[in-house]
Computed example of a mutant assay.
Amino acid sequence: MSKLMRAIGLMSGTSLDGIDAAFLETDGEDIVIRGPARTYPYDDGMRRLLLTAIADAGGLISRAERPHALAEAEQALTEYHARAVAQYLADVEIDPAAIDVIGFHGQTVLHRPEARLTVQLGRGDLLAHMTGCPVVYDLRAADVAAGGQGAPLVPVYHRALTAKLPHRPVAVVNIGGVANVTWIGRDGSLIAFDTGPGNAMLDDWMARKTGAYLDAGGATAAQGLADEEIVRRFLSHAYFNAPPPKSLDRNMFSSDLIENLSAEDGAATLAAFTARAIAKAREHMPVEPELWIVAGGGRKNRAIMRMLAEQVHNAVVPAETVEFDGDAMEAEAWAYLAVRSIRELPITYPGTTGVPAPMSGGVHAGPTAYFVR
């Protein structure tokens, strides 16, 4: 048996709400011992800086470019993560010397796999220097360079996490800024892809229309009425009929169609779009899942959960129903992937990203590998 490694996973998703940190003890294969998790929200200044960086990233043609606000955002983001690590270790009373590796997601600002380009802000060398811990980062880049979608990366962790559940096939859905699904067959086979929008469109809509940065609990959507014609138009996009593997940029879909709706009806329409896009993913699954497990911030949106349950045949449950942590699952996955990267185990597969063959990935940085820029 491989020696267990102690890892911290750091996830900063497309919802721009903050940093999820989680501890995992694992061999990178079958053994997964989950530890404490915490969330450290971004302040308004950090969120605004990241939104500016995402806008500035639209013209990037290489991963190394950092024009306009991107360099400032990357520095600030990395420092924010270093403070989050220090706070996390203090909060959960873990000795920093006990950590073997940090899996650092960074902030995705551009994702165009068709151009073999994906850009995650975050300096792994600086984070390693500031925390004193080895860091594995940029886990998507090698897959995209090899012709894969670079997303989703969590399926191999979903398979390990659900291995003891009685339900197969099972679907694990993460509703972050973009929603994705992992279908796990009875034999452990994997199919995974981005299903469509998650929370990002709804979050942006709420910010514009109400000043809030999310629809807490789905309360605004619950007060509105989904515009069925607009939902159908959204779902007529060619993306939904394209076979997986496939992935999405956060800003793939325009909200122009709903601009004349009220805040409530617009929120209901976007919630319906998210839910029905997830349900539509069944068209790409060999067998209907016996159970749908939902993680990510979207599981707290009761409108999305209700709409999804109305669309599929079997139970739809939040991750906590099967004793998983729906807030920490992706951070846990990044800890797991970091260990797999160190051990040169595959993190992506033809069935999850479309990469030609199973492959590992990630860039490794040690505490002494810091370069001033």
Rank of each mutant, 00 (worst) to 15 (best):
residue 247 S to D: 09
residue 291 L to Y: 11
residue 171 A to M: 08
residue 177 G to L: 07
residue 231 V to A: 07
residue 295 A to D: 04
residue 296 G to L: 07
residue 264 E to M: 11
residue 269 T to Y: 01
residue 20 D to G: 06
residue 63 R to M: 10
residue 53 A to N: 09
residue 52 T to H: 11
residue 223 Q to T: 10
residue 187 D to I: 14
residue 239 Y to L: 10
residue 198 G to M: 11
residue 32 V to I: 15
residue 110 L to T: 03
residue 253 F to I: 13
residue 295 A to V: 10
residue 111 H to A: 09
residue 362 G to Q: 01
residue 73 A to K: 02
residue 357 A to P: 01
residue 144 V to N: 03
residue 39 T to D: 08
residue 26 T to P: 08
residue 27 D to E: 12
residue 116 R to S: 08
residue 36 P to F: 14
residue 299 R to P: 00
residue 310 E to I: 00
residue 52 T to G: 13
residue 59 G to D: 13
residue 28 G to F: 02
residue 77 L to P: 02
residue 250 R to W: 07
residue 75 Q to V: 12
residue 181 V to C: 13
residue 23 F to P: 00
residue 317 V to A: 10
residue 109 V to Q: 06
residue 280 K to S: 12
residue 371 F to T: 13
residue 30 D to Y: 13
residue 290 E to T: 01
residue 262 S to I: 03
residue 249 D to C: 07
residue 3 K to Q: 15
residue 322 V to W: 13
residue 302 R to E: 14
residue 212 A to F: 14
residue 61 I to V: 14
residue 17 D to G: 12
residue 129 H to D: 07
residue 112 R to N: 07
residue 28 G to L: 04
residue 298 G to V: 03
residue 107 Q to Y: 07
residue 62 S to G: 05
residue 78 T to S: 10
residue 342 I to F: 00
residue 154 V to A: 14
residue 55 A to I: 10
residue 209 K to T: 14
residue 22 A to R: 04
residue 11 M to E: 06
residue 330 E to G: 07
residue 181 V to F: 12
residue 299 R to Q: 14
residue 246 K to W: 02
residue 61 I to C: 13
residue 212 A to M: 14
residue 152 P to R: 01
residue 50 L to C: 11
residue 160 A to M: 13
residue 163 A to K: 15
residue 46 M to K: 09
residue 252 M to G: 00
residue 129 H to M: 08
residue 242 A to Y: 00
residue 186 R to K: 15
residue 181 V to E: 09
residue 242 A to F: 00
residue 180 N to Q: 11
residue 146 A to I: 00
residue 355 V to L: 03
residue 275 A to C: 06
residue 3 K to A: 15
residue 68 H to C: 10
residue 300 K to V: 02
residue 5 M to Y: 13
residue 140 R to K: 05
residue 265 D to H: 02
residue 89 L to R: 03
residue 355 V to S: 02
residue 42 Y to N: 06
residue 346 P to Y: 00
residue 125 D to P: 00
residue 20 D to I: 06
residue 267 A to C: 11
residue 167 H to E: 15
residue 180 N to V: 10
residue 313 H to C: 03
residue 165 L to R: 11
residue 324 F to E: 10
residue 10 L to I: 13
residue 26 T to C: 05
residue 21 A to N: 01
residue 56 D to N: 09
residue 207 A to P: 06
residue 83 R to L: 12
residue 173 V to Y: 08
residue 74 E to P: 01
residue 315 A to T: 12
residue 247 S to M: 08
residue 70 L to E: 02
residue 115 A to Y: 11
residue 215 D to Q: 10
residue 174 N to P: 09
residue 354 G to V: 05
residue 53 A to V: 03
residue 37 A to R: 06
residue 258 I to H: 02
residue 201 M to F: 12
residue 364 H to N: 00
residue 367 P to H: 05
residue 160 A to D: 11
residue 270 L to M: 07
residue 307 M to S: 08
residue 201 M to A: 15
residue 85 V to D: 04
residue 280 K to V: 01
residue 36 P to G: 13
residue 279 A to Y: 06
residue 56 D to F: 07
residue 281 A to S: 15
residue 263 A to R: 03
residue 147 G to R: 00
residue 17 D to L: 12
residue 51 L to R: 15
